[in-house]
Computed example of a mutant assay.
Amino acid sequence: MDDVKIGEILLPGDEDTQTRRERDVRAKFWPTLKRAFRQIPFGRDLVAAFFCATDPQTPLRVRGILLAALGYFVLPLDVVPDVFALVGFTDDIAVLTTAIALIRGHMTAEHYTAADRALAEESLSS
Rank of each mutant, 00 (worst) to 15 (best):
T58S: 02
R61S: 05
V87R: 03
R38T: 10
A115C: 06
T98D: 09
L75I: 10
D2M: 12
D3F: 11
P41W: 13
L86C: 08
R20K: 07
A115K: 03
D45P: 09
M107G: 14
L77G: 05
R61E: 07
R23I: 13
D16Y: 10
T113Q: 13
W30C: 03
P12F: 00
G43T: 15
K34R: 13
L75P: 10
A118F: 03
E121C: 10
W30R: 07
D78L: 12
L77M: 08
F50E: 02
R38I: 11
K28N: 11
R23L: 13
I100N: 02
I103S: 01
L119V: 15
H106I: 14
V79K: 08
S125T: 12
A114Q: 09
I40H: 02
G13Q: 00
F37H: 14
H111C: 13
V95Y: 08
G13L: 01
F89H: 02
F29Y: 04
Q18S: 09
D116C: 06
I40M: 06
A69Y: 01
S125P: 05
G43C: 15
W30M: 06
D92F: 13
L10W: 00
K5A: 13
A109R: 11
A115R: 05
R38C: 07
T108D: 06
A48Q: 02
R104S: 15
D92M: 14
D116V: 09
L86P: 06
V4Q: 09
V25E: 00
I9V: 15
D78N: 15
F50V: 05
P76R: 07
Q57H: 08
A68H: 00
C52T: 13
A118E: 04
E22T: 05
L11C: 05
D55M: 06
Y72F: 13
D55I: 11
T90S: 14
E22H: 02
L75N: 15
F73Y: 04
A109D: 13
P12R: 00
A48N: 01
G71K: 00
L75C: 15
H111V: 09
G71D: 00
S125H: 12
S126A: 10
A94N: 03
A109Y: 10
L75G: 15
D45R: 05
D2C: 10
I65G: 01
A48S: 03
V83T: 06
A109T: 15
L119N: 09
F42Y: 09
K34Q: 09
I93M: 08
P59L: 05
Q18P: 03
D3G: 10
V95W: 08
H106F: 15
G71V: 00
I100C: 06
A101K: 14
F51M: 04
R26K: 12
I100Q: 02
F73M: 04
A115H: 03
V74F: 06
L119M: 15
G105I: 07
T17A: 12
F73S: 03
A36T: 02
F89W: 03
L46V: 10
F73N: 01
I65T: 09
R44H: 08
T98V: 10
A109S: 14
H111G: 07
A48V: 06
L11Y: 04
T17Y: 04
P56S: 05
A85C: 07
I6P: 07
W30F: 08
T17Q: 07
V83I: 11
M107D: 14
L124P: 09
D24V: 01
D82F: 04
A36C: 06
L102I: 13
